[in-house]
């Protein structure tokens, strides 16, 4: 696993994930390992509120059914939030959800995890995003 153990202040990462147990596990383990300080929300609507409050090193967003996740990333790329427009973003795409590869590429979505991804998978993903974001 490529998770760096931070010797500095852990980077701030926003995680929007409706899976409560996975979200909580990721938050706690990331904190314990010094990987990141996770700001977690259960959905994209709450994530939008978080985005207004401070800059983040990376975003991990579970795709919702009404496309709000794409709207959030679009506004991020337009510089509408305190975070850098180039902030690395990854999407969690659940079973039965479809995400157009062209749209993902146009929004600069760096990675996607599909299906019932594990907490370990999300932690690995955050590790890669933090490295990409210079955290």
């Amino acid at each position: 696993m490529s998770v760096p153990i931070a010797a500095h202040i852990a980077p701030d990462v926003l995680l929007a994930d409706r899976d409560t147990l996975r979200r909580r596990t990721v938050v706690q383990v990331a904190r314990e390992l010094g990987l990141a300080r996770i700001h977690d929300t259960p959905d994209v609507h709450a994530a939008v509120c978080e985005m207004d409050t401070q800059p983040f090193t990376a975003l991990v967003i579970a795709l919702d059914s009404d496309g709000d996740a794409f709207d959030l990333v679009t506004l991020l790329r337009c510089g509408q939030y305190p975070s850098a427009a180039s902030t690395p973003v990854a999407l969690l795409i659940g079973h039965g959800q479809d995400a157009d590869a062209t749209r993902l590429a146009s929004l600069g979505v760096r990675e996607t995890l599909h299906g019932a991804c594990s907490a370990r998978g999300v932690l690995d993903l955050i590790g890669r995003l933090v490295q990409a974001g210079g955290g």
């Binding site: 596990t25 314990e32 390992l33």
Partner: peptide, 11 residues
């Protein structure tokens, strides 16, 4: 691994 142990401890 240590990360596995941290995940199990969290659960």
């Amino acid at each position: 691994s240590r990360i596995d142990q941290a995940i199990l401890a969290s659960l």
